[in-house]
Amino acid sequence: MNIVVPVKLVPDLVEELEIDDGGTALDTTWLRFILNEVDEHALEQALLLKESLSGTVSVISLDGEGVDDVLFASSAKGVDRLIKLTGVDYGVNVNNHAMARFYATTVRILEPDLVLVGVQAHNDLDGSLGPLLAEYVGMPYVGYVSGIAPINGRCRVRKEYPGGLIAEMDVEMPAVLGVQAAESPPRYVAISRIRQAMKTAAVDEQAAPDLDTTGGPMVDSMFKPETAERATMITGDEDEVAGRIVDLLRELGKA
């Protein structure tokens, strides 16, 4: 079972987000990029399948700040091949159509049985990566997947619907699957093993094809939402806050 995991780095929402002077994009000066959270699950699911069925896992990423750390951490977790597409950076205006075209070129060469992607990212504005990539490489796509069991050239996948309902679907391989959650939480890897991977793992650098962003909208204004009503903030230390919460509960007859 050969699996490719194309990843996406996204702004870390823990940091304060600032809009740049042009008013149409995030100011990247202080922005920290981290691996898209559900990509961690796609990667974990790939490693679980490799461990139960043998095979290889390759991770592909565009270039940019933080990418090498992500690649070496993946290697420390058990990824066999690290591929970095150079000449294009997450920090510039690469939309998902463009990213899918980049990754399609590499996926076609690698000819995997499965491509596992995170089902979505918080900054997707032109659809998610998975279905676009699937169509560019001519593979079927099923997303919101939280379980994958390969049987005879097909995968039985668990697809999540609202309210906790699961649909089971059989998908012919090769296929692209959008992972919502791996069957077990993403594994932790010790920093010492990542350091070791930095010394031993090789990153295969490949020049990215020309950027083509056709298919996404243009943004002419970016702003922070203004809400009509915002929460009344309870100030003070934990003792004062706890006291006020108990008062509120008492007013409702709940404490």
Binding site: M218, D220, S221, P225
Partner: peptide
């Protein structure tokens, strides 16, 4: 961005 940013076009 998790509801923190709106974009228009």
């Amino acid at each position: 961005c998790g509801g923190k940013i709106l974009v228009e076009g």
